Simulated scan of single mutants.
Amino acid sequence: MSSTGVLRWNQAMLAAVRAGPLGPPHDPADASSVPARTGVTACTAVLEHRHADGSNQPGGYADTTGYAPVNPPMVVASR
C-alpha cells in the first residue's frame, strides 16, 4: 500500500516497519481474505474522504486561501 496520506512524521516509522522482520506489507490487490479486503476498502474510503475534506493534508496542511489576519497579534502576559 502506498504511503500517500501518511503524515510526514510517520514516514520514518512506516519505513522502519517495512524494513522490519516481517518485511513490507502485502500488496492490497492481493488481499484474498474477506477481512483483508474489508480493511483495504475501509482504509481507502477514509483516505479519500480525508484528502477531500479541505484540510489540504496532501499539501502538508499549507494555507492555500491567502488568508491574512486584520488584527495585530495579542500579547498574553503571565504574572
Rank of each mutant, 00 (worst) to 15 (best):
L22C: 12
L22S: 12
G23R: 01
P24D: 07
P24V: 10
P24G: 10
P25V: 07
P25L: 10
P25Y: 07
H26R: 15
H26M: 08
H26A: 11
H26S: 08
H26C: 07
D27K: 01
D27A: 00
D27F: 03
P28Q: 02
P28L: 02
D30N: 14
D30F: 07
D30C: 08
D30W: 12
D30L: 15
A31N: 15
A31V: 00
S32F: 01
S32P: 05
S32I: 04
S33T: 15
S33K: 14
S33V: 04
V34A: 12
V34E: 15
A36F: 01
A36T: 03
R37P: 07
G39P: 00
G39A: 13
G39C: 05
V40R: 09
V40A: 13
T41M: 09
T41D: 14
T41I: 00
T41N: 11
T41K: 13
A42R: 04
A42V: 01
A42E: 02
A42G: 01
C43L: 15
C43Y: 09
T44I: 01
T44M: 06
T44K: 12
T44G: 08
T44Q: 11
T44P: 05
A45S: 06
A45N: 05
A45D: 00
A45H: 04
A45R: 10
V46E: 07
V46Q: 07
V46K: 09
L47S: 02
L47I: 03
L47T: 01
L47K: 03
E48V: 04
E48W: 04
E48P: 04
H49E: 06
H49P: 00
H49R: 12
H49K: 09
R50L: 15
R50P: 05
H51L: 10
A52W: 03
A52S: 10
D53P: 00
G54H: 11
S55Y: 12
S55Q: 14
N56S: 06
Q57I: 12
Q57G: 05
Q57C: 07
P58K: 11
P58G: 12
G59I: 02
G60Q: 00
G60N: 03
G60R: 00
